[in-house]
Design a protein around this nucleic acid. Structure first.
Lengths: 344, 344
DNA sequence: ATAATATGCGTATACGTATACCCTATGGTC
DNA sequence: GACCATAGGGTATACGTATACGCATATTAT
């Protein structure tokens, strides 16, 4: 048989040159121990010379393993279509790297929540598993998640770990972080601590942060005043409005713990307008440590989530799940970043 | 033959249920016109009922088309491994969306420049084409690019379009943008315009921006003074040092065009230290419109590149190249954003 | 009416790999 | 010396799809 050296080399080409059969080539390159060292070395040499690479499609088809992970971003329908939540973007780096490290390819896709992504990715053999990153409100597609579980599709998602979970969830220790934030405020002498953040089941992370705050207060013998809890979604506008509402209500407070930095920045503006000094009159803590948090005046004390660790943990957890094992760990510690807004 | 309905449905299952042969199913679902409307409708109905999706691996293997694009990020080896250049990240959104729109999957990978990515991606049939995003210095892997061309691998990269290109390049109209920046400075009465940016062939974008500036000056009957050109790489430190050097040299100037915002911000600091007012004494223009540009004091006039258009154009150009056609357009207009640093 | 198309589909096969199974030589065991 | 395990690797085949080809029937042209 003539070997046309022009076209991409296959395992047959190598087999021919090495004087063995094609399966032997496959075995040698995949590390099967039923190939002699000499044969394997020879095959590897020839493969290198020919610039041979295993055809991923054929390999995946035969083995039913793609060595690929799909990353699905979910997004609110936003006017500016090219925006991505910077918070999740920062995870992308570590996810990519962790995948590469583990020998997996990474497939990326943005999804509107109403799409049939759960069908498209479960059966088309594009990936061995799925990572879901979204805006937290998994209630909206609970049914689809349940469908994934039913079809035994492997997936992990980023979210609130303590929540009654569908499938596997990885997330920051929001309760612990909230507790640390509360403890810090108490340590600087604050007693009347307000919380700004969505109280509904649609935002379990916010719930957890509030729970942590309450826990810290309880530990200090304080009671959380329900009147000091004000709803807000994660935006500057919403934070501004929430702080305004709180002020209008007239209930006294000497600190605010905001569910996110955006909320905190909005609140900061409301405080300034009300001629309240931060931190002297009202100390302020945010969450996320977005870049703007170190640019505000005063700079914002906040909680930094370990995005690098998050990406790695998501990948690790998913790979364990794919291998039929259970992940050891799904919660990540977060770190309090102390800045001027709590420096008294 | 029994149909085990438990396992993932294949085209054979559909064929059986529809009473046709498997190839007919394939033809029907791929839109071949040699299938009757009735048969096609029936097949499509059954496919929907079974939640059937085409097995991507088998399809790609047979057709030798993956309908997947690989996006390769190149990065300087950086201590913080999870950092991604935010500039390229902002392109990711539009690239992803454009891929989805065109029915392509997107494979993402970070690469160190020394790796053998050119081998791994050209032959393993993972993708039909490659998008390369990096830090501009393609000289460093010129050989690998030539290898890609030689192997007839389809790829596009982001960079300086005017440069003597290997393969297909998409980029902003740096010359036009430089010209616009120069024209603006001249319009506000500036005559002695300094340029901060790398003059070597490693930074063709900077070269182009300078060329544009010279062109604008020439159009106004002015000559660019070579003494007012100062080397700098894209970092705040380097911009600071470059401005310092310029000031130390004592050559008079009333404006600075910086090759990037980071350089401009560094220069702004040097000006402040030298007790020079911006823009009154020295007007300043940057490039890129990074978020910080609107936070500086004074806010920074700069050039905004069309990242959304860039992503779309990269994908479009690559798909045309894959189809054997040549792209119509590879250059994107950039837009001058006027802020306080040139407001006199 | 007969030949020339076209329509709609079945038959056979290829894509490149991985694995179940089988076979042949060794070498050691009793 | 008959017996069995083991190493090393060949044979056959499956993974699920897409396409070249052929073959009827239906349609039109002549």
């Amino acid at each position: 048989m003539g070997r046309p050296p022009s076209s991409k080399p296959t395992s047959f080409d190598i087999a021919y040159l090495a004087g063995v059969s094609q399966p032997t080539v496959s075995r040698a390159l995949r590390g099967s121990k039923s190939v002699s060292a000499a044969t394997r070395a020879n095959i590897e040499r020839i493969a290198r010379e020919l610039n041979y690479t295993v055809d991923k499609n054929a390999s995946s088809l035969r083995s039913q393993r793609t060595h690929t992970i799909a990353l699905l971003f979910f997004e609110d329908p936003t006017p500016d279509e090219s925006m991505i939540n910077p918070f999740f973007l920062s995870m992308l780096g570590s996810i990519t790297r962790q995948c590469a490290l583990r020998g997996y390819d990474l497939l990326i896709s943005f999804q509107q929540m109403h799409n049939d992504w759960h069908v498209a990715y479960q059966d088309s053999h594009r990936s061995d598993g799925i990572i879901l990153l979204g805006y937290g409100d998994y209630q909206l597609y609970r049914a689809k998640l349940e469908h994934l579980v039913e079809m035994d599709t492997k997936f992990v998602r980023w979210g609130s770990v303590s929540e009654d979970s569908i499938g596997l969830t990885v997330g920051s220790d929001n309760i612990g972080a909230g507790e640390a934030a509360g403890a810090h405020l108490i340590a600087i002498g604050r007693r009347r601590i307000a919380f700004l953040g969505d109280a509904s089941a649609h935002a379990p992370e916010f719930q957890d942060r509030y729970t942590g705050l309450c826990r810290a207060m309880a530990a200090a013998g304080l009671a959380a005043d329900p009147a000091l809890r004000q709803n807000a979604v994660s935006s500057e506008e919403s934070g501004y409005a929430a702080a305004k509402a709180l002020l209008a209500r007239g209930t006294a407070f000497d600190a605010i713990f905001a569910g996110s930095d955006l909320i905190a920045i909005g609140a900061m503006r409301a405080l300034a307008e009300a001629k309240l000094r931060c931190p002297q009159d009202v100390a302020l803590i945010g969450f996320d440590d977005i870049p703007a948090a170190s640019q505000t005046s005063p700079t914002l004390t906040t909680v930094m989530q370990d995005m690098k660790g998050a990406g790695e943990l998501l990948v690790d957890a998913l790979l364990r799940r794919i291998d039929g094992k259970d992940p050891e760990r799904t919660m990540l510690p977060a770190r309090l970043i102390k800045r001027q807004s709590t420096a008294v």
